[in-house]
């Protein structure tokens, strides 16, 4: 069974079609990047897949569960780390982690244990008693991803995980994301070509609500005759397709 399958997935806002008949397959354990300029339909696609918005037409199955007919089941399989910082600022790192574990049904001691595990994995131990709002952007982003992972999702959506981070913080976060490969399915949206290239198994390029190309970075480069993913992306943009 694939992690994600979409069939004619469409979202319309009045006269505007944000996502138009999307046909996408993501394999289990794969790290799949979605690329596209602003307004290409990436965020709307993620919102439909994470049950935040209902499709206007079509269907999406996450590990066989329908986002239209079984959204509650889908929500038990997924976690989302949004682009903006999504932490409770006046709670400590520990309290943020335990809150998310508790929301997903963990008892008090289990939540505490899970928080400890995730803190160790993301090197957050020394920050555990600091309020999340007082952490630097890099630590907040790290906490945000740890909060998503504490739910033990089968599919993780990472929306622009390293946006605004410095080079060092980005490299550290890349390591954390790489470590997830094979363990869970990760859908990554990013504007950074080097990020998509460094982290993902396959890349989907979206434009005008449609999925235009899918392949590895090397395949996309070969197809467009470009010498880098960025050049390949620009070539697609110049064709007026993105």
């Amino acid at each position: 069974m694939n992690a994600i399958e979409t069939h004619g997935l469409t979202k319309r806002y009045g006269a505007l079609t944000a996502v138009d008949g999307l046909e996408l397959t993501v394999r289990r354990g794969e790290l799949f990047a979605l690329l596209g300029v602003n307004g290409a339909g990436k965020t709307t696609t993620i919102k439909m897949l994470s049950c935040l918005t209902r499709p206007s037409a079509g269907e999406a199955l996450l590990l066989g569960k329908s986002v239209v007919r079984e959204p509650e089941d889908v929500k038990r399989l997924i976690a989302v780390s949004p682009q903006e910082t999504a932490v409770a600022p006046k709670l400590t790192v520990r309290e943020n982690l335990e809150l998310m574990a508790g929301i997903h049904g963990a008892g008090r001691s289990a939540a505490r244990e899970k928080a400890r595990e995730l803190a160790a994995r993301f090197s957050l131990e020394e920050q555990m008693d600091r309020q999340a709002g007082k952490l630097s952007g890099g630590w907040q982003r790290r906490l945000s991803i740890a909060m998503a992972l504490i739910l033990e999702p089968k599919i993780l959506f990472l929306d622009e995980p390293t946006l605004g981070l410095d080079v060092l913080a980005r490299a550290e976060l890349w390591e954390q994301i790489r470590a997830l490969k094979g363990e869970i399915t990760v859908i990554l949206t990013t504007h950074y070509m080097e990020e998509a290239e460094a982290l993902s198994d396959r890349i989907g390029v979206m434009g005008r609500g449609r999925l235009l190309r899918v392949g590895s970075a090397a395949e996309l480069e070969a197809e467009t005759g470009a010498d880098s993913l960025e050049a390949a992306f620009i070539a697609l943009a110049k064709e007026g397709k993105v």
């Binding site: 976690a79 780390s81 949004p82 682009q83 903006e84 999504a86 932490v87 409770a88 600022p89 997903h104």
Partner: peptide, 17 residues
């Protein structure tokens, strides 16, 4: 309003709450 602005609620809306 802060929760809405910071996307914390967005994160929580994707949980079974």
């Amino acid at each position: 309003s802060k929760d809405r602005g910071s996307a914390l609620l967005l994160r929580l809306y994707t949980t079974p709450l």
